[in-house]
Amino acid sequence: MKPYVPQYVGTITKYVFVDSPDITPQDIATAAYEIAQGIMIKETCFGCQITGSPEDVERIINHLQKLDPYRIYVKDRGFPPGDARRCRADLGGARPGYLGHEYEMDLARYITYGLQETDRMTNEKLKITADQKVPRPEMLDIEILESLMKEE
């Protein structure tokens, strides 16, 4: 077996996602470059990836979050950016995690709304809301839906 020598030891990588009508992924990446000070920034279709010491990465993320405080999403990544082991170009297809992002980013607008609303709440109101259950509308039976569509 071949020995493995890791790169970027001691660094962390974080994904920054943006889901905003005002700020594009490119804006995010540009803003990150501006204060990068040598830290590795990689622009992506959803925002950027930042690789460096935990302190540096946090410094840049804090700055980015100010651009649109309710619409910036962040998570850790195990791999450094552009790693051939995870790269779509090398694997022929997206790594499975990409589809998970797709799924959650579709829900981001609800989270953004929730963040804005809860920021305006008093402690009491927050507590009451946290315990609330929103009744879900019953799913329409697929056969009923089909017959409705046929009637149309």
Binding site: R88, L91, G92, G93, A94, P96, L99, E102, Y103
Partner: peptide, 26 residues
């Protein structure tokens, strides 16, 4: 070896079309 590239919507559609309702996302 390569991974056939599919999007999330393809997964949802294929899962429904194929009709084998397994629980594991992979």
């Amino acid at each position: 070896m390569f991974y056939p590239d599919v999007a999330l919507k393809d997964v949802k559609r294929a899962y429904r079309d194929f009709g084998l309702l397994v629980k594991s996302p992979d």
